[in-house]
Amino acid sequence: MNVVLDIFWHDLPSAVLAWSLLALLAAVAIGVLAAYTRQAEPQPAGPAPELLEQQTMLSEYAQTLARKAREASAAAERAAVTARRRREEWLAAQEVAERAWQHYDEADSQARRVLTASALPLPRTPQTPAEYAFRERYLHRSAMSACSHNRMSPLELSDALAHRRGWDPRRHPIEQEAVLTKVARASLRTAYRRASEAEKQAWLATEAATAAAQSLRSAAHTAQMRARRASRRVTPA
Rank of each mutant, 00 (worst) to 15 (best):
I30H: 10
M144G: 11
F8Y: 12
A26P: 01
D108I: 05
Q110F: 11
A100H: 01
P169M: 01
L204H: 11
M57L: 14
Q176S: 04
Q127L: 08
L52Y: 02
E175A: 02
S196A: 08
A184H: 04
R87P: 10
Q54F: 06
S231T: 08
L51S: 13
A75S: 09
D11S: 13
R85D: 14
W9C: 02
A18F: 13
L65C: 01
A230R: 02
A111K: 08
A119C: 05
Q102H: 10
T82A: 13
H221Q: 14
L58R: 11
P49D: 04
H103F: 10
P13W: 03
H163A: 02
Y192M: 00
V234D: 03
N2A: 15
Y138R: 03
A160H: 03
A80W: 12
A45N: 08
A15W: 15
A93P: 03
G166T: 00
K200A: 09
P42C: 02
T64H: 07
T116Y: 09
L17S: 14
A40G: 08
Q176I: 02
T222G: 14
R233M: 15
A35S: 13
A227F: 01
S73W: 13
V28H: 06
P49E: 05
A15M: 14
S142K: 10
L58W: 07
S148H: 12
R217S: 14
A79P: 01
A212N: 09
S231K: 11
R228Y: 14
R228D: 14
T125S: 15
R87Q: 15
W9V: 03
R189G: 08
L122P: 02
I7C: 14
T82I: 09
A191M: 03
A220G: 00
H163L: 04
D105P: 01
T125M: 15
E98H: 08
H10K: 12
S142A: 10
R135D: 01
A227D: 03
R171T: 01
K200I: 01
V81Y: 10
A205N: 12
R70S: 12
A66M: 09
Y192R: 08
S118M: 11
E95R: 10
W9G: 07
S218P: 05
T125R: 15
V114M: 13
A209K: 01
M225R: 12
M225T: 14
R70V: 06
N2P: 15
A219H: 04
A45T: 10
A107P: 03
E53C: 02
L65F: 11
A111W: 08
S20C: 06
R226C: 00
I174A: 12
P173E: 00
Y61Q: 10
R84F: 06
L17M: 12
A69P: 03
L115C: 11
N150F: 10
A186D: 10
R87V: 03
R217M: 05
L115S: 14
A15P: 04
P13N: 03
A74F: 15
A191S: 11
Q176P: 06
S59W: 13
R193Y: 09
W19I: 05
V81H: 11
E136G: 12
E177L: 09
A209W: 05
E88L: 05
W101E: 09
E207R: 12
R85V: 09
R38V: 06
S148K: 13
Y192P: 01
E175F: 03
A27R: 05
A66Y: 09
V28P: 07
